[in-house]
Design a protein around this nucleic acid. Structure first.
Lengths: 102, 102
DNA sequence: ATTATATATGAACATATATTCATATTATAA
DNA sequence: TTATAATATGAATATATGTTCATATATAAT
């Protein structure tokens, strides 16, 4: 048996946790992260693949970048995005599997 | 090494996953769920403990109940709520721990 | 029946959010 | 320099969301 402590939640933790889940609470952001599971993709590539407005994708990527869920790498005019939080990606994958099987 | 398949997300799965994370994206709901980790509590008790409006707590509990994240049990005038999704509670706990240690 | 207590509900409202549009920035090529 | 391509940004807007208020419902006690 594993003992688990449930301390009172401090404001900072509460905010950080809620923000992280907020990132995963939007279908568009889930689809973007899902694409970035095992590869890096450019903004245009993401937008085309998901049939989304380029501006929309940029906004969502900024959101994810601010939370350090994705990182980017520039190559000429192109910017390649990739995942940057193993833990969150694992949770997302778990939840997708869980939802699929029901 | 573990092979992972990343199929395209169907609409239904996408909606379900996003809704679940939406439940966890609000500080008030996180605090309520956190209280229900290892016990059942009445609406009034939750409201008093978290210093929240009774109506607010009722609304949030309905939200969580619709997603089957909590269940309830009536005893006279009092209704006791408790958690009803081990998987989601585990994810929440993981994320709180993860956020705490940073 | 009346009163009191616990919870739920709907309307109202202020704020947050997702998306689009137009345009700015940055880098490459001609 | 001018033109083109990739991305970012800010304003605008429609919709979603969280909270409160007033009130309804349900149960129990007197």
């Amino acid at each position: 048996m594993t003992e688990i402590k449930h301390d009172a939640l401090d404001e900072e933790t509460l905010f950080l946790v809620s923000q992280t889940f907020k990132a995963l609470s939007d279908p568009t952001r889930i689809r973007i992260l899902h694409l970035l599971f095992d590869r890096e993709l450019s903004v245009t590539n993401i937008a085309e693949t998901l049939d989304l407005n380029q501006s929309n994708v940029s906004h969502q990527l900024r959101f994810l970048k601010n939370l350090r869920l994705v990182k980017y790498r520039r190559e000429g005019k192109t910017i390649y995005y990739s995942q940057d939080d193993e833990h969150v990606m694992k949770i997302l994958q778990q939840s997708i599997d869980h939802a699929c099987h029901h």
